[in-house]
Structures are given as C-alpha cells and as structure tokens.
Design a protein around this nucleic acid. Structure first.
Lengths: 212, 212, 212, 212
DNA sequence: CATGAATGAGAGTTCATTCAT
DNA sequence: CATGAATGAACTCTCATTCAT
C-alpha cells in the first residue's frame, strides 16, 4: 500500500521489469569481463554466471545461447555510441571538429570497456561475420561517412592542404586503431602516449593547409 | 652425379631428417589454416591432423601440446621476416625508402598468410603474453626503430616538413594496421584499396616537406 | 501418515540433499567395483559411470578427479571402522578379547567389500603415499596400539607365556593379512579355511601361558 | 687380430647369442624397475626401453607384448629361487631349519628386488590369474609342502609343542608377508625391524616344545 | 522466474603396437 | 636384428545446454 510500484508484497524498490533489466545488465557486465579476459571460445558461462551472481540456467532465460549473449553484448555496448558518432557539427572550421572526434574516441573508447569490446570484435570478427557486418554498418561506415564529409569540407576550405585525404577517412582513424591494438598488447611493457600520438597525427593531417 | 640423395630432383624417399622436416612443415601449415579460421581455442587438433594428413598422435611427436604448436607456428612464420625488417637503406632520400617499406609490407604481409598470423597474434595476444612480447621484441620494436631513424633523417634533410612525426613511427605504420584489420573483417562486403590508401598516406606524410 | 517425506516408506522424490547423497554413494559403490576389479590405473571412469547409472560428467560434480574419487572411496570405506578398532575391552582375560578382535576382522573385513578396499590400498599404496599414510595413521597404528596394550596385559597376567610377543603386535595380525592376500589370489583354486587358521593361530599365541 | 673370438671386426667380446641374452636381460631389468615403480597398467614401455637402452620396437623382438613382458619378468625372477625352496634338509632338528628358511627369505627376498616382484604379483594377481596360479604352483605350494613336512617332523619329535601348527604352514610364513607388505607401504615413516620380528615369531612357534 | 544437478558430445592427450627403413 | 616415426583407439576431463524442482 505504501509502494504503488510494488504490488503483491515485493519489498524491493524495483518492479518486476526493472529487476529483470538489472539482471540482464548484470549478466552482460559479467560476460564482458569474461569474454574480454578469455575470448569467446575460452570463456565459460559458469564463470559468467558466478560473476553475475546468478545461476547458470538463468543466463538462458535472458539469452538464447552463448553466441547470442556475445552478440547482444557487443551490440548493447556499441549502440549507445552510434548516435554520438554522427553528432559532429556540420559547419565551421574542420580541425577543431576532427580534434574533438579523436579526443572523444580516446577518452570514451580507448580508456573504457569499449576498447575491450572493439578488441573482441576485431579478434572474433572472422568467426562472427554478422557481428563484423553490424559493426561496419552501424559504427564504422557511419563514422567514416561523417569524416568523409568533414574532410571534403576541409579540403574545399583549404584547411586541409592535401586532397589525397578525401575518400580515405580511414587514414584519420588509423592511429586510433593503432592505439587500441597497442593498448591491448604492448602497453604493459612498452607504454604508448596515445594523446601525444594524436597531437602529432593532427599536426600532420593539417600541416600543409592554412588555418581556417 | 654420384650422390643419389643430391638435391635438385624431388624424389619420394628422401632422408629421414627431410621427411621429418616435411611432416613438421605440413603440420604447421595445417595448423595455420585451422588457427586462422577458428582461433586458438576453437581450432581442433583433430582437424589439424586431418588437414596435415597425419594421425592425431603424430602432432605430439613434433610439438609438446596445442599451445606449443601455436606459439611455434607464429614464431616460425615471423622469424624469416625479422631480418627483412632491418634491411632498409640507411642513406639517400627518405621517401623512396618509406615507400619501399610500406610496399614491402603490403605485398609480403597483407596479401599473404602472414596477415593471418599477425591477425592471430593480435587476437590471441592477450592470452599469450609471451607471444605478444616476442612479436614486439623481434618485429615491432625493430621495425619502429628503423623507421625512427629514417624519420629523423627525413626531418633533418627537410624532406619531412613536420617534425611531429619523429618519435611516432607508429603513425607511419598505422594505415598498414588499418589495412590488415579491414582486410580480415570488412573486405568481403566493403573492399578497401590498400594500395591507394598507402599512396594517399605517403602524400600526406611528405606533403609539407620539400623533395629531397 | 501426515508427513509424506517421513522415513519408513522408501519413496522416490526424497529431498535434494538425500538424492545428492545417494548419487554420491552410488558412484562410490560403482567405483569400488571397478577399482577392485581393475586396479586404479586400468579402471575406466566410463564404466564407473555406467555402473552407477549416471553420466560421465556427473562423477565430476562429486569428485575432483579420478584420484580424488579413489582416495575418498578408500577413506569413506575405512572411516566407519576406525572407531570399532579401539572398542576392545580394556579389562579382564586377554584371550577372549584377541579372539573377538580376530573374529571381528574375519567376519567384518575378510568376508566383505572391505577386503577389496584393503587389497586396493596394499596394491596401490606405493603410488598413493597419502593413502598409505592415512591407512597407517587411522587404522593400522591404532589397531596395533590397542593390541600392544592387550599383549602387555596378557604377558603381565601370565596368560601369554612368551614375552617375545610384546612390541610385535604385527605377529597377531599377520595371519589375517595372509588370509586377505590368499583370498584375493589363490582362494579360487586353493581354498584356505581362514577360521581354522585363526584357531590354530590363537592356540599357538596362547600355548605356553596359563589360562587366566 | 688380437681377439680370436671376434671374427669379422666385431670388437665386443660377446657372440650374437650372448648379445641377445644380454639385451633380454637389460629389458627385463628395466621392466622390473618400471613395473615396481608404477604398477603394470601405469608403466610405460617407452620408459622401459629408455631405461634398457634400446628402442621401443626392440622390446617386441623379445616379448610378444606388454603383458608377456610382465609375466616373463615375474617368471624369470621367481624361477631361480624355486629350487632353493625345496633344498631344506630333511633330517635333524627342525628349529634351525625353519630359522634358516626364514632367514633365507628375509635376506634373499625381503631385501632384494624379489620383494618388488612379489609385491607386484600380489598387487596384480587378480588381473593376472595365470601369474597367480604360476606363483602358487611353483613357489607357494612347494614352500608350504616343504614346511608342512618339516612341521610334522617337529611335532612328532616334540620340538613343536603345539600340533595346531600342522596343516597351517601359512602361519610360519605369515610374518614374512607382513614384513613384505609393511616394507612397501609403511617402512618410510614407520620402520619395522623384520629380523627382530622373525626372532619373536620363532620364539613363539617353538615356545611350548622341548629343545631337540 | 530462478535454480543447479545432470547430461553427453567432444576436446586434448597418452601409449601399446606396428612396420618401413 | 634394431630402430623410432607413425598410428589411432582409448582415456580423462570440460562445458554448453537442459529441465525437474
């Protein structure tokens, strides 16, 4: 009677749907840890369940099977960032936008769990074509399209001196990929200053243009 | 003409040592296929054996276990290229050397089995720190050191206008990595012209400098 | 009649804990059969599972591995008898006590599954030092200690004429061991009347003493 | 030219047959070590071969298979002692003969490789009925028959006071078995003075009789 | 909804045995 | 005779998946 959102005597401050969503989130979070640490094939659902604080069977109430869990994990992690990818300003000087774009990736991707997710996609991509395609369609192609327009504008305005860059937005992103891979493999014993790397990268990209 | 075992005529019997080396090579080749296709954990030694045309137990005559097979495979594939990495000319104009360096990678790595091996190292690196370290020590760090000297020379001679590049040889290689990853994931449905990518990349790198 | 789970009527469902304990017992019983028949190394868990009526994997829900199954089997079989070993009367005439002791062993050990267990311990002891030590500590040394006190009393009271026996309680048990080994190896084609053997043994032990 | 027994340039001082016999002996010796250490099932012919200094296949030139090797090993080790078993004097006082008999076993069996062989027979007996039967027929029954006659003589002459012993020669041997088993299992952490045990045993056996 | 005991196909690994050299 | 590379059946152990409770 006190809690209108909890009919039937549920004391917990959450409704059934919320509890369910929370469980789902717990499982996804646990799965991320395990998949990131072991890879898809070597990760054990037993460990995912233990880490999520649920029984092994419960996972199957929320996900069809191991592969579905993996794919939904990747999707769930990527989706919130898909919008951000296209939120770049369409007007004004180009360099600050590219800078913001790269800074965004460095801060919100490379230094977060998202880096693990993308490394997973890269590592397992060949075994999960659907995932690779999803990643390309929803993230990569969109980001590259945005970049492409940006670069065209930069070339048109003279900010970017070298027209070679148009049609190869991958060149803008390549150092990010380098930072991502390096971080997963060599960071431990050969640290790489990604921020400085990005500054140098920007300097080169905009070197021969004139300031906007 | 006196020696019936003389090289030059491929004959069946061969020596014991040759047979043995051939078997080993067969197994490694089969392992490459399977590991590249399935990843380390999901690859089955049964399939490796079948593909190599040997019995399952035979693998264990040549390799301690699955992990050893994997590590030796990577090492065996990388080692022959280690020397090549440092064979860049130490004198003269810089751009042609960098061009040759990238062309070499594109031709001898990206379009060969070596690409699979490096993708494997990237994918499994976190689970095989020894391998990641080997790859860094024997390949990555050497190549970067060579590039570093090259870039310094280019900056000193004015060929490279932008000194930002020095100390970040990773920027030179980043597009190669991009091509490698792209090739493994998106090439099927979104082909990338790596050669053109490289030309654009070079144009940008040497854009603001004066010709040597 | 009110409690459907009440003991006294063997019914199927039972509680989870009971089911679990029963499964464990089934597996141990099956393991005893197989280990006794084949020895540790040659026994196959597949057969244990089949005999226990469970799947192969189920064994691993209850026991860490084959060796743990073996060791727990031996412990589980021996433990219930450890108390019995020290339950011999500490007063009165000695001969009846020794007689009872040997009769107990002949009836409760030699003619039961326990004989198989001890034969297993003897056969596998060298490969399972922990088991040999357990058996010595919990069974052998205790039984010998009890016997030792008993013999000392018998010598003190004159019931046992020969003081040589003190400090060698093994001599009292040796014929039991003989019966155990004989039973496992020769009984089939050269039967040995263990009861008569024991009577003769007792006659000799107490031959030169005077009745208590 | 110096060695007339080595025609054809063979430097080794042995003929073909001798070499062969030596090889056989080497294999048997190696097999004894391995079987004693690991038991029949767990012993590896690979280790036997390595220890014997021959190739794995060579074993099969001398023995049909693993089981034959094992059985011939046991037979070969026991046969030389079969004669000794019946070489006990048929006349004169009994006690010295029994003493000699037990002393012989303690010295020539318990403290030698023979102990390992008999422990093996005991451990593997149930799996090798033919071996158990051979051991019974050629060793056990003969020794017991000899002992039986000896005991009868002792009882007849009054040396042995207790006629219960006749028909149970096993009682004479039981402490030896105890020593054998104890040696294999507990000797390490609970040493048993077998010689003293035997003296006590003899004292008891002959306690109530009058000296011859 | 949630559980976790149970399943059983399938993985890596071993080793007795064979046979071309 | 001797070798040891090769075999492949058989083993132990794992783990995604199911289902009675």
């Amino acid at each position: 009677m006190a809690n209108p959102a909890a009919p039937g005597g549920a004391r917990r401050p959450a409704g059934r749907a919320e509890r369910s969503a929370a469980r789902r989130a717990d499982i996804l979070a646990a799965a991320l840890e395990e998949f990131a640490a072991c890879g898809f094939a070597a990760a054990r659902l037993d460990d995912v369940a233990r880490r999520a604080g649920v029984a092994k069977g419960t996972i199957y109430l929320y996900f069809q099977d191991k592969q579905a869990l993996f794919e939904e994990l990747v999707r769930a992690m990527l989706v919130p960032h898909i919008a951000a990818v296209e939120a770049l300003p369409a007007e004004g000087p180009v360099r600050p936008v590219v800078e913001a774009f790269l800074a965004h990736i460095v801060h919100d991707v490379l230094s977060t769990r998202l880096a693990d997710v993308i490394r997973l996609v890269i590592a397992e991509g060949p075994r999960f074509p659907a995932l690779a395609e999803f990643y390309y369609r929803e993230v990569v192609s969109r980001a590259l399209a945005v970049l492409d327009r940006l670069l065209a504008r930069g070339v048109a305005s003279g900010e970017i001196g070298n027209p070679a860059l148009v049609h190869f937005p991958q060149l803008v992103v390549a150092p990010v990929l380098m930072g991502l891979i390096w971080g997963g493999m060599f960071q431990r014993f050969a640290p790489l200053d990604v921020a400085a790397l990005m500054r140098a990268h920007l300097d080169i990209l905009f070197a021969s243009g004139r300031a906007a």
